[in-house]
Amino acid sequence: MARLTVESPLGPLTLTSTAGVLTALDWRTAGAASDNDAVLDEAARQLRQYFDGQRATFDLPMSPAGTPFQKRVWAAMLEIPCGRTATYGDLARQVDSAPRAVGGACGRNPLPIVIPCHRVVAGTGKGGYSGFGGLTTKDWLLDLERRLVLVPTP
């Protein structure tokens, strides 16, 4: 297991990789830097691009730990376009489940931002957010994405 902490406008984010794949992104925790981990270096580069408004999606090898149901929900979240939102009900219909179960899977997402759980909202337009800062962070991420000036990513 390798770790790398990167600075972001939201505070430090600690990335974890195992066996060449990204496995976690933790809010506001500091971890010792690992020696030359290509996946972590690339994840840090892509996160910087995202926060600089130059990247709308992530292209990283990842393997988040979760149940088969959680992984279906996370895959559905990856299909929500940058700057857009979907409701818990929308995703529940897509994965043949209930909105509350989708909300639980969102809250257990080990790769927030990369797997965009912030793009999932309640039918009323908000919903919760388990990331550091709660709804303030969720709103900040959605505002960032709405302002993105998309340029081709390498």
Results as ranks from 00 to 15, higher is better:
Ala2Thr: 13
Ala2Ile: 11
Arg3Asp: 12
Leu10Glu: 04
Pro12Trp: 05
Leu13Ile: 00
Thr14Met: 07
Ala19Ser: 06
Leu22Asp: 04
Thr23Trp: 00
Asp26Met: 05
Trp27Phe: 06
Arg28Thr: 02
Thr29Leu: 12
Ala30Cys: 10
Gly31Glu: 06
Ser34Ala: 12
Asp35Ala: 15
Asp35Glu: 14
Ala38Ser: 14
Leu40Gln: 03
Ala44Val: 05
Asp52Ile: 10
Ala56Val: 07
Thr57Ile: 11
Phe58Cys: 01
Phe58Asp: 00
Asp59Lys: 11
Asp59Asn: 07
Gly66Asn: 05
Thr67Ala: 07
Pro68Cys: 08
Pro68Asp: 07
Gln70Glu: 14
Gln70Tyr: 12
Val73Asn: 00
Ala75Gly: 13
Met77Thr: 02
Met77Arg: 03
Met77Ser: 01
Cys82Pro: 08
Thr85Phe: 08
Ala86Thr: 07
Gly89Glu: 15
Leu91Lys: 02
Gln94Cys: 13
Ala98Tyr: 15
Gly103Glu: 05
Gly103Arg: 09
Gly104Gln: 15
Ala105Trp: 07
Cys106Met: 06
Pro112Leu: 00
Val114Met: 02
Ile115Ser: 00
Ile115Glu: 00
Pro116Gln: 01
Arg119Thr: 01
Val121Tyr: 01
Thr124His: 14
Gly128Thr: 09
Tyr129Pro: 09
Tyr129Lys: 02
Tyr129Arg: 00
Gly131Val: 04
Phe132Pro: 09
Gly133Gln: 00
Thr137Trp: 03
Asp139Met: 14
Leu141Ser: 03
Asp143Lys: 11
Arg146Gly: 12
Arg147Gly: 06
Leu148Glu: 12
Leu150Ile: 13
Val151Pro: 12
Thr153His: 14
